[in-house]
Design a protein around this nucleic acid. Structure first.
Lengths: 307, 307
DNA sequence: TTTCATTTTTGTACAGGACAAACATTTGAC
DNA sequence: GTCAAATGTTTGTCCTGTACAAAAATGAAA
């Protein structure tokens, strides 16, 4: 165990380590070797596979491209350079916004304090709304892409999200949930662990004076429905990251049948870009559109005279 | 995927689901079946294994006992009742502390607000120190055990930790890092995602007036060392949960060689209970002992007159 | 265009054999 | 009697090769 982790300097990584590194199951690694001839790892004295760093790198690249929709059969045959070119082509060549300058550096320096200070500085400079809509939106994408490209490691991506959550939470603690309608409940579906998007929406809703109630992540759909009923919310906000495994579509459809009448469903996050055939009560949310959504809701639901 | 998770009502769980549920690798499940005759799952039309709920339950119980040091050969032959008796004997028969009353109920009700309010109420009632040392310590163990026993589901356990983190962070935001020595840096090793323990220690350190710097989770050891140097910390605190896969022992040994002279290493969390042969600079930390550790450090390091 | 059926690709499961690391036990020296 | 080395067992992981079903692509018909 020690050997495996601390001495990748030797011949190579055993198959279990490669599974952890790349997320590709052992069985599948062996299958690819037989079917495509790649990877073709060296063997140790006992005949066990030892994957070289290059092979692991290519495997990671292949997996990244598979996440983009490519099939393995088309990928494994290509050289690393070709794969990188492919990745280039299919990664929207975005200009790094000025606001994000220094972020990647701070992250790869593993300096939590520097990251936090950078975030706080931007927050102070831009104000909460622009911090969320301009800075964080760009930064999330930047970090996500860097991670996909293999330029950031897990713990660096983790550092980013931890610090963003920390700063957002600290800030939110200072803005109490407003008394105004609509009353909004925020959560994610089971399997969806990413909370940043949710916190961003929460911040904007608070700024708009809404009565935003943040539930944690991963609520079973039936519980979302019952909580919506119990807390008499007007809107349920769900966030789906790009990494969400299940189908936001299916979740929306199921929730549609579970939620009480009159409750709206707002779906946000990169995981539900381009969704179609949503139930009528569901709306796609973007950060830009959020204020408009709230205004629209208020127009359609004028405060009752009595009550 | 959907089927697998949402319809455990049918014949049983496939082997991959059992691996996830129990943490026992597929290969090992098949090996046990061959060697010990347990578990002997049913088969579906295609000949694939389908494990019954009872089998999965027994597997979980076996794994729990293995974590306590038993060997599988002695366990698999026994009946569930015998296993439970064994577990009883070797689980310090803890009474559910009064402070934790209602927590499990709130969690299984999936009511994030109720959980949060319960936590806040306890925090207010007990004060931060007792909240951390008495309530959270007990609650963590309670939740951990309930999860091991299969009484809580992933998202319920997740709800707990999210809410605890939220409350602790909100509270910590109100207590700035003290100016006093020692200057302490908090983090976890790569692979260790659990942050609650770290936040608890951070809270106690802040109360003691220490200059506690919380880094996020998962710092590579070499980065810990360089950050310690850069920030001139006096003490590095590492937290290991019981779920930590690698060896805290090895981590400590490696860090020992990397850290600058004079920097102490405090190790805490259930993952390092009963560690032996630690390097001399390493100390085992418990919540109870923390204040004593700080005082001891201060005695041994009287503030310099100049500087 | 959309919808359905067919073929290809891809992932996961199986069996049974081998071996080495972890653990337990015995033996021998001090 | 205590410690340490040698021996024997138990246990986990990896190997080969095969089979099959779910998913994706393709092509035909509406």
């Amino acid at each position: 165990m020690m050997n495996e982790d601390s001495a990748p300097s030797d011949g190579g990584l055993p198959i279990a380590a490669v599974e952890r590194e790349t997320g590709i199951p052992k069985d599948l690694l062996r299958m690819w070797e037989r079917r495509y001839g790649f990877p073709q790892p060296a063997r140790d004295a006992a005949g066990d596979r030892l994957y070289s760093a290059e092979q692991v790198g290519k495997l990671k690249q292949v997996r990244r491209l598979m996440d983009l929709g490519f099939r393995p059969g088309k990928l494994v045959g290509q050289s690393m350079a070709q794969l990188e070119a492919l990745a280039q082509t299919h990664t929207p060549a975005r200009v790094v916004p000025d606001v994000c300058a220094g972020l990647i550096d701070a992250l790869s320096g593993h300096d939590a304090l520097a990251v936090r200070e950078l975030l706080r500085h931007r927050l102070f400079e831009l104000g909460l709304r622009h911090f969320v809509c301009d800075f964080l939106a760009a930064a999330n994408q930047l970090v996500g892409e860097a991670w996909m490209r293999g330029e950031l490691r897990v713990h660096e991506e983790h550092l980013y999200s931890e610090e963003v959550k920390r700063v957002l939470r600290e800030t939110l603690a200072g803005i109490p949930a407003g008394p105004q309608s609509p009353r909004v409940m925020l959560t994610t579906c089971p399997g969806e662990l990413h909370l940043i998007g949710l916190l961003m929406v929460e911040a904007l809703l608070r700024l708009a004076g809404c009565d935003a109630i943040a539930f944690g992540a991963q609520m079973p759909l039936s519980d979302i429905a019952s909580a919506a009923r119990k807390h008499r919310v007007d809107v349920v906000v769900l966030s789906f990251s790009a990494a969400y495994e299940a189908s936001p579509q299916a979740d929306a459809a199921l929730l549609d049948s579970l939620l009480p009448d009159g409750v709206e469903l707002w779906l946000g996050g990169s995981g539900c870009r381009g969704l179609k055939r949503l139930p009528p009560r569901a709306t796609l949310l973007t950060l830009e559109r959020l204020d408009a959504c709230v205004s629209l809701w208020r127009e359609l639901h004028p405060p009752a005279i009595a009550v």
